[in-house]
Design a protein around this nucleic acid. Structure first.
Lengths: 242, 242
DNA sequence: CTAGCTTTTTGTCAGATTGACAAAAATGGG
DNA sequence: CCCATTTTTGTCAATCTGACAAAAAGCTAG
């Protein structure tokens, strides 16, 4: 933001969305099939260019969220993830993309007849392993988004965003297990979430499943930051964290 | 990144740098006095527009770092902080600024005769309190940068970046105390950093100060991620974390 | 050269937390 | 009414934390 009487270069600004959810106890991500070049036919993150020069980044992210994922925007957490603006990442020119992370509490299959018609949930592992190829540098963005979700599970109540309005403690544990990719001890998990004041609060009734003891229902509490944090077992840290 | 046959709006891209250091046991930030409109004469973060369309964001950040702060780029940590792109934040048009956070290990006064001639260190408290007014939305960016530093002190070895090549444990403790704004118990701090393998390693000699028992010298170890983390006493959490 | 001051380093101990394993409680089904 | 299943609770050793205290090592003044 210093001086210049010379014309600074301009760029095209886009937003990309990493939308994560839990389906069948597995972490999944919403991807769309690109309809145009470049990377026509390839899988990519939902997103797009700013619609008009006055549109804010978060507004654009919310717009794409409702257009392409057909989601009730208000209920979702939406958080800035990063900026991906290396020259050469898009053959159309200098495109700088601002990525957002959204956590969705279970969703039906994307509804046809909308912009999201060609959107579908994919297992996160198939993306990270490279089995599914993504357009641009989107795989890198996905990796960053997943890592962000892992970290946020430690220090925030984000896990409840994966669940519906009410959930059992086992449901919540499955969120942690799916995102972290590890098994947790039920007793210790129970103790931890119960003693973290305001993390979850009782929601009255119980849920009976087909079999087994009925589970108590909870809902997200007022606390958004967890102190002390949930601790991720050291076995599952990323390499450079060892 | 969806389809369009219409021309997407363009924006001007800038980088802004939050450069923090410790001077006299206080957290300080490098600010420059703006030489041109808008906000001419006001204090602002070092930064500027991309120099040419092929310049990468990190390259621009490094360039500004060496130009305006006159720093040896290679030795500094430089990390993406956030994106600030609300319409209307810059009267010249749609400017999207990518902010970076840099931690500097003590520096002499900014040298005259360079781009950094009008740069000076300011106490972070004077900025956050509003006593010093900053251009644009830079105060918000500073606040985000400080909060990022606070959090990173917990989970990473970032604190060593505030110190020189060698330092004492008391030096390190003063980093934590200055950034967190709280006093720590020396015994417990000592125990914690010593038992976190790879955080700091002995550097041989000792440093004699004017008075008192000589302190052992250490240098930054290989570990960059702290597990378990340093814990910030609960008294000093931000309001929404309570 | 020694007493006193300052700063660093180490001791200690009660209370809290974690990790691991086990047992009890509640429900539906045969 | 016994059994399988799932949720919930007990327990206990090992570890970590918070608080306070004391020892160690150098410098300086007299």
């Amino acid at each position: 933001m210093t001086d210049e009487q010379w014309t600074p270069p301009v760029v095209l600004l886009a937003v990309d969305l990493v939308i994560l959810t839990l389906r069948e106890s597995r972490l999944q991500i919403l991807l769309v099939e690109r309809g145009i070049e470049p990377y026509k036919g390839a899988l990519a993150l939902p997103g797009g260019f700013l619609q008009h020069p006055e549109e804010s980044l978060t507004a654009a992210a919310h717009r794409e969220l409702s257009e392409e994922a057909d989601m009730d925007v208000a209920t979702l957490t939406l958080e800035h993830l990063g900026v991906y603006g290396d020259p050469g990442r898009d053959p159309r020119g200098r495109v700088v993309s601002v990525a957002f992370l959204a956590i969705a509490p279970w969703l039906p299959e994307p509804t046809a007849g909308t912009d999201a018609a060609n959107a579908e949930w994919q297992e996160i592992d198939r993306v990270l392993s490279g089995e599914l190829e993504l357009a641009f540098d989107h795989r890198r963005i996905v990796a960053d988004g997943v890592e962000r979700a892992r970290v946020k599970l430690e220090h925030s109540a984000l896990a409840t965003a994966f669940c519906g309005p009410t959930f059992t403690i086992t449901d919540l544990q499955e969120v942690y297990e799916a995102v972290w990719g590890i098994r947790l001890d039920p007793r210790n998990f129970y103790r931890k979430v119960q003693k973290t004041d305001g993390f979850i609060v009782a929601a009255g009734s119980e849920r009976k499943s087909a079999t087994g003891r009925p589970a108590r229902l909870f809902k997200a509490g007022p606390r958004k930051v967890l102190y002390p944090p949930m601790v991720r077992p050291t076995e599952l840290l990323t390499p450079e964290e060892q």
